[in-house]
Amino acid sequence: MAGLFGYTLALADDALISAQRMSWWISRAPQLEEDVALANIGLDQLGQARLLLAYAGEVEAAGRGEDDLAYLRDEREFRNVCLVEREQTDFGVTMARLLIFSAWQCELYAALSRSADATLAGVAGKAVKEVAYHLDHASRWVVRLGDGTDVSHQRMQAGLDAEWPWAAELFDDAFLDTGLVDSGVAALPSSLRDAVDAGVSAVIDEATLTRPDVATHYSAGRDGRHTEQLGFLLAEMQHLARSHPGATW
């Protein structure tokens, strides 16, 4: 069961791995304005990850800082949901994922901004404004693509269908020490579901898309059981730092 360290780490890993995938778009976006926007979103997520990792290190009190936690853990020690770790090279997939993820982060950070833990409350209070922009950006694109051309409608629906089965893990309470919820530190994941669902469904309707009717994929990223793709992501992200043990950059 994740205590404060594990909980903070899970939220940090969600943001970090999402930022790593988002940064792929820089120089590859459909138009220059989108290179700027996606870089901005990735930077916000990375900023959230850094604050949360630094705090996780503090809570752990074992001398690990943000870079130790980001660069020196292996696949099984990462606690992010599988939603964010998979390849994200299709714009429809990217916007579907960002819609789900940012809608969830909005509810999460809004709840955590009232956390009994002052650091989590502070981080969430700053981040909630950032993710509101991410949600707005994703919503507008999902609507444009859903209600754009026949091709974009199909591709946006395909993106939504591909991401939907991975969303359930965001609302799974199983990994969490419920004492953290009782003490007002953490937000109970399942308590966020209705609000996220309502927000996402409204966007899907406006976009003339269909709410996916697909089975949930079994995934347990919160327990360190990931897709095969995370290993490659980490290999790339970590190799330079690990090639020079103890070096300062």
């Binding site: 714009f91 444009r144 693509l145 591709r155």
Partner: peptide, 12 residues
């Protein structure tokens, strides 16, 4: 690769 996205934005 981004052409379909730009076309959709214009159509919308």
């Amino acid at each position: 690769d981004g052409a379909w996205v730009r076309e959709a934005a214009t159509a919308y």
